[in-house]
């Protein structure tokens, strides 16, 4: 796969970098195509490559010892992942899986990237902005998972919207529930799965069916 400076100029770390400064970079990059569902990196892997999505989309997630999955981030074209292992630690703190049919990933090893960064302040500034944004995202997730009773809030939202109106049942997306609960969509998805595992609801394609109203009442603090 031929990587050009134009390809690289679309990647988050190199946005705003003059084209002539990117001239030597394509030869330092590798690329590979992944199919939907294929694992790109696994949590705990020693992995010192900075990855970028060229086409397609990648899911970043962690898995608990019981097999429960928490999505951390969806990475879209131009965005990076595995930054944390590249700039410290060397071990990947999460797994990455291709969601798109043909997901093309570019990567550069840290030993090739760091000398380039030392010579170009704009790339360093981009990296700092990206890492700050990632830290902000992770802190928000910590707050949601540690301090907020998101499952209780989701239970309350389901109860409040379970009464059919003149036009039938209420319909809510996970983004709408997230906005109502003051959290991220990824956390709502996990909460719905938890409620389903506990038997309080069942997810039947486009329907959320309430199975145990009294359990949801208790979670929501309504009795």
């Amino acid at each position: 796969m031929n990587i050009t400076t134009e390809n690289l100029s679309q990647l988050s770390y190199f946005v705003g970098v003059e084209n002539d400064r990117l001239a030597g970079l394509p030869s330092l990059f590798n690329s590979k195509s992944f199919i939907k569902g294929q694992t790109i990196v696994s949590e705990g892997d020693k992995q010192e490559n900075l990855h970028f999505v060229n086409t397609g989309v990648v899911k970043i997630y962690k898995t608990s010892s019981e097999g429960k999955e928490q999505i951390i981030k969806i990475v879209r074209p131009g965005e990076s992942f595995n930054d944390l292992a590249v700039f410290g630690g060397s071990f990947c703190p999460y797994s990455a899986q291709a969601l798109g049919n043909t997901t093309i990933i570019y990567w550069i090893h840290k030993n090739d990237l760091l000398p380039v960064m030392e010579k170009n302040w704009r790339i360093v500034r981009n990296a700092l902005e990206i890492l700050s944004e990632q830290a902000r995202l992770l802190l928000a997730l910590v707050e949601d998972l540690s301090f907020k009773n998101v499952t209780g809030r989701v239970a309350k939202i389901l109860l409040q919207n379970a009464t059919p109106g003149p036009e039938g049942y209420q319909r809510l997306t996970q983004y709408e529930m997230a906005a109502m609960a003051g959290t991220a969509r990824e956390v709502v998805g996990r909460s719905l799965k938890n409620l389903e595992d506990s038997g309080a609801i069942s997810l039947e394609r486009h329907r959320i069916v309430i199975k145990d109203r009294s359990y949801l009442d208790r979670l929501a603090g309504l009795n």
Binding site: L158, L159, N161, A162, T163, G168, Y169, Q170, R171, L172, T173, Q174, Y175, E176, L203, H206, R207, I208, V209, I210, R213
Partner: peptide, 9 residues
């Protein structure tokens, strides 16, 4: 959008 109907039998 993939909206869910919220149904309480």
């Amino acid at each position: 959008q993939c909206p869910f109907e919220i149904v309480a039998p």
